[in-house]
Simulated assay, not measured.
Amino acid sequence: MSEKSSVCIVGSGNWGSAIAKIVGQNVVEKSDIFETRVNMYMYEENFEGRKLTEVVNEKHENVKYLPGVKLPENVVAMPDLVEACKGADILIFVMPHQFVRQTCKTMQEHIKDSALAVSLIKGFDKAPDGKPGIAMISNMIEEILGIDCAVLMGANLAPEVADEQFCEATIGCKNLAEGEILKNLFEKPYFRCSICMDVETIEMCGALKNVVGIGAGIVDGMGLGHNTKAAVIRLGLMEMVKFGEMFIKGSQEVTFFESCGVADLVATCHGGRNRMLGELVIKSDKDRPNWTIKELEKEILRGQSFQGPLVAQEIHEVLKERGIVDDFPLFNAIYRICQREIPPSDFIDCLRSHPEHMD
């Protein structure tokens, strides 16, 4: 890397904007090691008759996806991906996971060979070349761009981070030097970062917790209480650990006790957008029974997306390929409810009959 590291944020939704606030402040406070300008790639949209990037750069606020939160003036929204990432030493990926592959291909010929990527994306990629299984987003970024990719995951609901409420995050990286660079970039007194080398487990937790979060929302939608939701969290965590044992070489159980694991799971099951989706699936089942997830998404999220249903589908395909769907009954029930294959009322039957309860 150069003497001072320049930073580009690839993505600009509510989480991207919340992290832009942190990064924008930190590069100024640590201008001895970081360039102070932060480019933020933003997919161009119209907002009240104007280009969204122009509004964001004028108001220093993401008026569509994180309204009411001021961004540092050194964070510059840019609609041209190539121009935004050119020359960057650190590339922060924070976007829906289904768009990452094409984004990386667009960037491929325009980034530094020495750059470091870090993924804040909570999802999976399909295994390459038609092979069964899943692949990590960080691995896909590495393969396309030819650079190292770390991850940052944790109990980080974007509005609370933007409001500077205390929280923790886990940085997953291949070596301590990369971890220290990213810790300098992300950590604030209210946003504490730990470093861990179990990268794929950390990333897996960030994806799977969104599926369990839908289950927690189903419980809320049915008007059930804290005890039932606690059962969903516990059984969901067990299936997450089991998934890691089966699909991630060297997965360490201790990693699930980092912020990326049980903490992120608890936060998502109480306040995340995928929890909200689960609740809305129940409510729409009563008055709009034919509504799809996409229709709910369009009405509620103003252009953003629920990641949980897509991850549920991806892992269902992997489990089906291996003939082990029945070993993950919670994941399977949530997938089938999202697909409208079974009524949400069947969810409690899934909890009652979970193998964990069998002698």
Results as ranks from 00 to 15, higher is better:
4 K>F: 12
5 S>A: 14
5 S>M: 14
7 V>G: 04
9 I>T: 03
16 G>N: 01
17 S>G: 04
21 K>E: 00
21 K>A: 08
24 G>H: 07
25 Q>N: 14
27 V>Q: 06
30 K>T: 04
42 M>F: 07
42 M>T: 15
50 R>C: 04
58 E>P: 02
60 H>I: 09
61 E>W: 12
61 E>C: 13
61 E>G: 07
65 Y>R: 03
66 L>G: 08
67 P>V: 13
70 K>L: 08
72 P>K: 12
73 E>G: 04
74 N>F: 12
79 P>A: 14
79 P>K: 08
80 D>T: 11
80 D>W: 14
85 C>W: 00
87 G>R: 02
89 D>K: 07
91 L>A: 10
99 F>H: 11
100 V>C: 09
100 V>W: 02
103 T>C: 15
106 T>V: 11
117 A>F: 03
120 L>C: 13
124 F>R: 00
124 F>C: 02
125 D>F: 03
125 D>H: 08
127 A>N: 13
128 P>G: 12
129 D>S: 13
140 M>Y: 05
146 G>P: 08
146 G>Q: 11
154 G>M: 07
156 N>P: 02
163 D>L: 14
163 D>S: 15
163 D>W: 04
166 F>M: 14
167 C>W: 08
170 T>N: 01
177 A>H: 07
177 A>P: 00
180 E>R: 13
182 L>R: 01
183 K>F: 00
185 L>R: 01
193 C>R: 00
195 I>N: 03
198 D>A: 05
199 V>W: 01
201 T>R: 00
202 I>M: 06
203 E>I: 05
206 G>Y: 07
207 A>Y: 01
208 L>T: 06
209 K>L: 11
213 G>A: 15
218 I>F: 12
218 I>C: 10
225 G>F: 11
227 N>G: 11
233 I>P: 00
235 L>T: 02
241 V>H: 05
241 V>S: 05
245 E>T: 02
253 E>M: 10
257 F>V: 02
259 S>L: 01
265 L>F: 09
266 V>E: 03
268 T>D: 04
273 R>L: 13
283 K>H: 13
286 K>D: 09
288 R>V: 05
289 P>K: 12
293 I>C: 10
297 E>A: 04
299 E>S: 11
303 G>T: 13
303 G>Q: 09
309 P>R: 10
309 P>I: 13
311 V>T: 15
318 V>S: 10
319 L>W: 09
328 F>Y: 15
329 P>V: 13
333 A>Y: 06
334 I>F: 09
334 I>D: 02
339 Q>N: 10
351 L>P: 10
355 P>T: 12
357 H>P: 00
359 D>I: 12
